[in-house]
Write a protein that binds this DNA or RNA. Sequence first.
DNA 1: TCCGCCATTTCCACTAAGTGGAATTAAGGG
DNA 2: CCCTTAATTCCACTTAGTGGAAATGGCGGA
Lengths: 258, 258
Amino acid sequence: MAQARTYAGGVDGNRSLERGIEILRAFRPGVDTLGNGEIAERTGLPRSTVSRLTRTLVNSGMLDEVRLERTYRLAASVISIGHAMRTGSPVLNAIGPMMRAESAKRRLNVGLATADRTMMVYLESIRYSPRAALRNAVAGQQVPMELTSLGRAYLAGIAAGERERLLKLFKRRSTAATKALLTDVRRSIAAVERDGYCAVSWQPAVLAVATPIVLDGLPVYALNMSLQNVDRSDALASEIGAYLNAFAAKCKEALAGR
Amino acid sequence: MAQARTYAGGVDGNRSLERGIEILRAFRPGVDTLGNGEIAERTGLPRSTVSRLTRTLVNSGMLDEVRLERTYRLAASVISIGHAMRTGSPVLNAIGPMMRAESAKRRLNVGLATADRTMMVYLESIRYSPRAALRNAVAGQQVPMELTSLGRAYLAGIAAGERERLLKLFKRRSTAATKALLTDVRRSIAAVERDGYCAVSWQPAVLAVATPIVLDGLPVYALNMSLQNVDRSDALASEIGAYLNAFAAKCKEALAGR
DNA sequence: TCCGCCATTTCCACTAAGTGGAATTAAGGG
DNA sequence: CCCTTAATTCCACTTAGTGGAAATGGCGGA
């Protein structure tokens, strides 16, 4: 393989597969089509390599080719695999219905998420508001780990080593106010350890409260409750926090027998 | 590569990537975890190869490892890529809101799907019934192409060569009643060509009517309308068919400017 | 309509990345 | 504690994969 520099993955790990997955990941939300050139730029892979791998992904049904524009888009296969993930998830199966009931009962939004690298990914998000409920399904939506209650609850739930690794990544990518941000993140983690939950107002007029769900043999999840159009107040946060703690306990109970 | 038999993909196509994708596909809806052995069985790949590829998929964040059981499950990444597919889809973006409005107006279910190999995959499915609306999101759900109105409308929309290729596959996999089934499929295709839509009652007491949406530079989609708890009658089918034709025309108009 | 430009794809020489059977290790059951 | 069963690592082998260079093919401008 002329000029093919040694693959860092070493004895294990398959370079081509890794690269192919990176190509799929290059299609971020909102991106419709990407050409091989653009993919090569985004992934840093040689153009000829991208050309071959995109062809393979088309053959495997993961990408659709737009011959006219010489571009590609994600194919329907990816949502069918996503659907398999959701229907297979024992956590979502067990507590999804409970989340719906709780959302109706408490009249607030209830969400379940886990991590994908440095982002939190919603497995489910039940909107109380009839308006919002009509909006597009948000399963799969990503929110930044370091800025959200979900992410900070997740950080509180994982092993210390992994947590520090992630905090270093935030430090590296954050443009400004890094010091203050990290302090705030650590404060949230401490809050989870103390109160069982943390409260964050990431978006204006939205109060969100989250708690980690740690189970053997499963990734760490985070469960949250949120309210729109409210002023952030400690009283409100602790009220919702109490609801959340109670609900999380019920969920863990339901999940214990598995 | 001892005993590595020639890769049929030829000059293009990357074998490892293809195999890795097949491993992801082995996780069908309802499957929670799979071990390397089970994956090897399902995919027909050598055990050692599966072992290496699953490790790569874990490193790439597509699979979560359950160390305790020596098994793997699909990771949250797959739904975030699925989400990217949905938010990127110009068709879903354009007609999703229209589908919601139409469902409310006509008081019936409205769905949008496209093909993944021999299955139809829902991009969106709006349930009119408030009960059903509460159920899990069905985006990503698969239904068999040859048995559903969606699938038959799709078949009517694609190029003849591809259609015949698919019909052959159905013939091969169907256990019995193949001849009658294929006749029925062709009848549906003829119906689409004649009336613009076809009506199928795949599931008992459900009447479904579908029509293809063919656009340049996009895969062929199928749009359907369905009603539960009804008797199949030609009168009802043609009433819904008329609604569907009108709605599909509106959709195509909305999509023309792109 | 034809020409020149730019992006994409194909070609090609090269070899390390990937392969699969065998050996080894680890897990689970009695 | 040992034995069985399955997953992982080892290893010799060589082809599948690589990336730069050349060829191809759209596309816009004249």
